[in-house]
Structure formats: C-alpha cells, structure tokens
C-alpha cells in the first residue's frame, strides 16, 4: 500500500466516530453478504465486549498464560502489522480483536482439524491492545498484547 493510501486509511479510521451512528442504523453494513456463516453482527460491533459476545454468545473469559501472541511491540506501519497467535490447547477457534479499531474484530480462524496457530497481518488505526480469544473445549480463554504504532516517526 502506498504511503498516501495509508494516510487516507488512518484518517478514515479516525473519522470513524462519526460513522458509528450511520453504521448503527445499518447504513454501512456490507449489503452483499454472501457467505451465510459470516457473523456480520460480530464484525460490525463497535467494542471488543460486544463483538466477543456476539461471536461466541458468551463473555465469560478466562485470562490464560497458555496463549502466546507474537507481534512487534512497536509497529512502524499500522496498515500491516504481522501477528501470530499460538497455543498448545486443543482449539475450536482463534479470534483476534484490535481494541482501538472502529470495528475491533479482525478475524476468526476455525481450527478444529488443525493446530492451535493462526497468523495474519492486521490493520491498526493507532496504538492499541490486541486481544486473542481462544475457544477450547467450549470455554473462552484470552491473552492480550499492547502494540504501539508509530505514525510518521523514525521507528524508535
């Protein structure tokens, strides 16, 4: 992504507060949702708690040391922050939330037949806690990591 586009994205994200009202009224909801299983209310949720509740139907979460989040503590480019979530627990799914984003839920990986690992690159509007939620044997576990995003800095 070019530098200019990234700026626009960041600005757009900051203007998100105003958009919240419109989206709440359903104006911004992606209208052509094709996949029946795509949990649109969870992705459109404006806070981590609401998103988790909508995605899993529960907000009873245990903090867990058995989940590792690997990511740079300081990201130079908020449009592309690499992140890995690892756990040795038997996993149903792993989901990733970025607390300060307008829509915190970044994605969920369903891993019943796979290993407890999910990696991707996320967009971050600004420095934020990143929260990983792991569903294991019907219970929710979570871990979080604060990632700093440098905007226009020298990468410290």
């Amino acid at each position: 992504m070019s530098e200019i586009k990234r700026r626009t994205f960041l600005k757009g994200s900051m203007a998100g507060g105003l958009l919240a009202v419109a989206a709440g009224a359903g104006l911004l909801r992606p209208t052509q949702v094709m996949a029946a299983q795509w949990p649109d209310s969870a992705f459109n949720a404006r806070s981590v708690d609401v998103a988790i509740n909508s995605l899993y139907g529960s907000s009873n979460i245990i903090d867990s040391k058995a989940i590792k989040i690997r990511a740079p503590l300081q990201a130079e480019n908020g449009a592309k922050v690499p992140i890995q979530v690892l756990t040795d627990m038997p996993v149903d799914s792993i989901s990733v939330f970025i607390k300060e984003n307008v829509m915190p839920l970044a994605g969920r990986a369903n891993l019943k037949n796979a290993s407890g690992f999910f990696s991707t690159r996320i967009k971050m509007a600004k420095s934020s806690d990143v929260i990983a939620v792991v569903k294991s044997n019907g219970k929710l576990h979570s871990a979080k990591l604060a990632i700093k995003v440098t905007v226009g800095g020298c990468g410290g």
Partner: peptide, 16 residues
C-alpha cells in the same frame, strides 16, 4: 477463517 476489515491489504494467512 472469517475475516473482517481489520485484516491488511493483500492478506497473508497462516495455518498449521
């Protein structure tokens, strides 16, 4: 996986 707009352009996904 189900993805939202918080995933970066040209998404890179890893599974094991």
């Amino acid at each position: 996986a189900e993805l939202g707009i918080g995933i970066s352009t040209n998404p890179l996904l890893g599974f094991r």
